[in-house]
Amino acid sequence: MRNNCWSDPALLAARVLIAGLFLGGAVQKLVSPADVQALLALRGLPVALIWPAFLFNLVAGLLLVTGVRVRSTSLLLAAYCGGTSFFHLIPADPWQMSIFVKNWAISGGCLALAVAGSGRWALRPDIRNQASL
């Protein structure tokens, strides 16, 4: 992958696009917490869990954008998406089922980013093992 002139810009684009989902989720939780709190309540969880989720979304999104700790952040985000997908497992609601499936797709993107690392266009490039990609 190091020989491709497009790999570093592509990794930057991947980081920014995936981060956009999490940064948007942080904004949504901050601006309209009732929607997420309703999903938490539906599963019998404390609605106050929205705030650690907000913080995680915000910090993880910023880490991806800046290219800091991309591999570990991406692994955590993949697990987060897999876990939070079950909040949307409502078979009677096609919209929620769409979100359920999209969360698994996002997990896949995060796993790919965890393998690829940050690329060179990052505040803290993670270029180890990229020569073999």
Rank of each mutant, 00 (worst) to 15 (best):
V101D: 02
D126I: 01
Q28P: 08
A48D: 13
A78S: 07
A131C: 09
L58V: 02
R124E: 10
R69Q: 11
V70Y: 01
C81A: 13
A41R: 07
D93R: 08
L30E: 08
P91V: 08
L21Q: 12
I106Y: 03
L63M: 09
I127V: 15
V101T: 13
F86R: 02
P91E: 07
C81H: 11
L11H: 06
A53Y: 05
A122V: 03
S74R: 06
Q130F: 04
G119Q: 01
L42K: 15
C110Q: 04
D8Y: 10
A78Y: 00
L111C: 03
I106K: 01
M1V: 06
A38I: 08
V68D: 06
V59C: 05
R128N: 13
D35G: 15
T73A: 06
P52N: 05
I18H: 01
L58C: 06
L40V: 04
R15S: 04
G61S: 10
L123S: 05
G83F: 11
R2L: 15
A105T: 10
L42R: 15
S98P: 00
F54N: 00
G117F: 12
S132H: 10
S7D: 14
G119R: 01
D93K: 11
I99L: 10
A122C: 09
A105L: 15
R120K: 14
T66F: 15
V59H: 05
P125E: 05
Q28R: 07
A34S: 13
F22T: 00
L123H: 03
N103K: 09
T84E: 12
A112Q: 06
P33L: 10
Y80K: 01
V47P: 00
